[in-house]
Nucleic acid binder design. Structure first.
Length: 488
RNA sequence: GUCCCCAUCGUCUAGCGGUCAGGACAGCGGGUUUUCAUCCCGCCAACAGGGGUCCGAUUCCCCUUGGGGAUACCA
């Protein structure tokens, strides 16, 4: 069997962790089985739709680096892949259901529905959902209403009794009492657009989708879809409900937990490899004893049986760790390229500047193992581009010493820096300072802390001697002199 | 409220009847070191509870509890 799976997002928001996780699992499953991964745009909600979200979708996946085999932008054998371009289809199938007495016209307006809901809320234990008011309208009444041009929706007739069962790859068979299924959900809205329920069933069938992998929040609509497949006489794709992704508080991951949109992580300086690697392991495991996987390795190792049923909490700290791992795997040249836009954004350098490119390349070894996210580079590297602002005098003072000592140490450092030192040679530079510390009977740390602050503007910084090598002798001397003047 | 799904360290997870319950992140302690970080070593830390089944349950079944999800002309 040729496996065909789809990711079917609705362009009503930016791509977020949960959606991308679903897409990734679908992708891994398809590729591990030699199957096809399809993108379908479910743009049937016209009130929340925006072009910007479609653009965000494409941007996000280009950036992430895994892509669909068929989709709106690249076409495919069952095009179109955008639901708004398939409109006549849905009406046709909705009407077919009516003809089969599996669906019906409903003329209830929002006002009546609103009152109904309100009444239900008040009498807490009572019925929930639509009261099936129009389910048994006479044929005449329907014809009259239609003739008058009354707005209507088409609703699915859920059987009042009996049960419906669907098969889930992960959960096994799940049985529902029909009485517990959402009472007669809308299939075709009054604006002529289908709801998710109708469109997803029609398209999954027409697009020959074999497996539907989606989050567990969709479980309650599975039996309802099953009823439609049965009505049409179609085979239902095999379902696989994925565990949900939760925030630290145990609720569905959302904005209030922090960044959730992929572009936010991108802007914060996360690497796609890290995001993909981390996200894939939410509710899924690959192999014991290893944490880092390329996407190809994940394809190789992916097994449905290794999916988890329980929801997973999204851990920002662990993602950060993955990011650090991938940053450290980069070559200096690669990392310099990655960091560049963040430096430009921070106003530290221009985009077109070969001298700056060279400086960045030199600086990468100093920051590589210190970066958690790429955006950290801006604050970390600023002192290499320009003299840092003078920190408070106290910053210069080594532990358990005073300002006089700091000043003295700086003078000693200045003397060393002004010697005939080879600033391109780390070892001799380091040796010179060590020797000098011994000569004057000072602790190396006491000698170097004021120097570090003079050079980098902070007590915590990238390596000192490497920094001085990049800055050069003249700049080093200037910064020491400035600090001496400042402290005097 | 009702229905459905779920349940191993704080978090992500390994485990598919017999294990000192393993790994990773975080935390803590130590080492390397001119700061920070990286790296290395160590420590802390879990089978929700109660019944069964079985010679033997983390593992299989049931109940309780807990958590989550769904109850829209949103997906």
């Amino acid at each position: 069997m040729n496996i065909r799976v789809r990711y079917a997002p609705s362009p009503t928001g930016n791509q977020h962790i949960g959606g991308v996780r679903t897409a990734l699992i679908n992708y891994l499953f398809a590729k591990s089985m030699g199957g096809t991964f399809i993108l379908r745009l479910e743009d049937t909600d016209r009130t929340r739709y925006s072009d910007g979200y479609v653009k965000n979708l494409y941007d996000t996946f280009h950036w992430l680096g895994f892509y669909w085999d068929e989709g709106p932008d690249i076409g495919g054998p069952v095009a179109p892949y955008v639901q708004s371009e398939r409109l006549p289809l849905y009406r046709q199938y909705a009407e077919q259901l009516i003809a089969m007495d599996k669906a019906y016209y409903c003329f209830c307006d929002e006002e009546r529905l609103g009152q109904l809901r309100k009444a239900q809320d008040e009498q807490k234990s009572g019925e929930q959902g639509y009261d099936r008011h129009c389910r048994n309208l006479s044929r005449d009444e329907v014809t009259r209403n239609l003739g008058e041009g009354k707005p209507y929706v088409i609703r699915l007739k859920i059987p009042l009794e009996g049960t419906t069962t669907f098969a889930d790859l992960l959960l096994g068979d799940v049985e529902w009492k029909n009485a517990d299924i959402s009472p007669d959900p809308v299939l075709l809205k009054s604006d002529g657009f289908p709801t998710y329920h109708l469109a997803n069933v029609v398209d999954d069938h027409l697009m020959n989708i074999t497996h539907v992998m989606r989050a567990q929040e969709w479980i309650p609509s599975a039996p309802l879809h099953r009823i439609m497949y049965d009505a049409f006489g179609w085979e239902q794709p095999l379902l696989c409900h994925l565990p949900m992704v939760l925030g630290q508080d145990g609720h569905k991951l959302s904005k209030r937990h922090g960044a959730t949109a992929v572009n936010e992580f991108r802007k914060a300086g996360y690497l796609p490899e890290a995001l993909i690697n981390y996200i894939a392991q939410l509710g899924c495991s690959f192999e014991d004893g290893r944490d880092l996987f390329t996407i190809d390795e994940m394809i190789e190792l992916f097994k449905v049986e290794k999916l988890n049923k329980a929801p997973a909490v999204f851990d920002y700290q662990k993602l950060e760790w993955f990011n650090g791992q991938y940053i450290r795997q980069k070559s200096d040249a690669e990392l310099a390229q990655l960091v560049k836009p963040f430096l430009v954004d921070a106003g530290i350098r221009e985009g077109e500047d070969s001298a700056a490119d060279a400086l960045d390349l030199q600086a990468m070894p100093l920051v590589k193992e210190r970066l958690k996210v790429l955006s950290d580079a801006a604050a970390m590297m600023a002192y290499l581009y320009r003299k840092p602002a003078m920190p408070a005098a106290a910053e210069f003072i080594p532990k358990k010493r005073d300002q006089q000592t700091a000043l003295q140490m700086l003078r000693e450092c200045l003397a060393v820096a002004m010697e005939d030192l080879d600033f391109s040679n780390l070892e001799t530079m380091e040796e010179a300072f060590k020797r000098h510390a011994e000569q004057i009977g000072a602790k190396l740390g006491d000698l170097l802390m004021p120097l570090r602050v003079a050079i980098t503007g902070a007590r915590v910084s990238p390596p000192l001697f490497e920094s001085m090598r990049i800055l050069g002798q003249q700049e080093t001397i200037e910064r020491i002199k400035d600090s001496i003047a400042y402290l005097s």
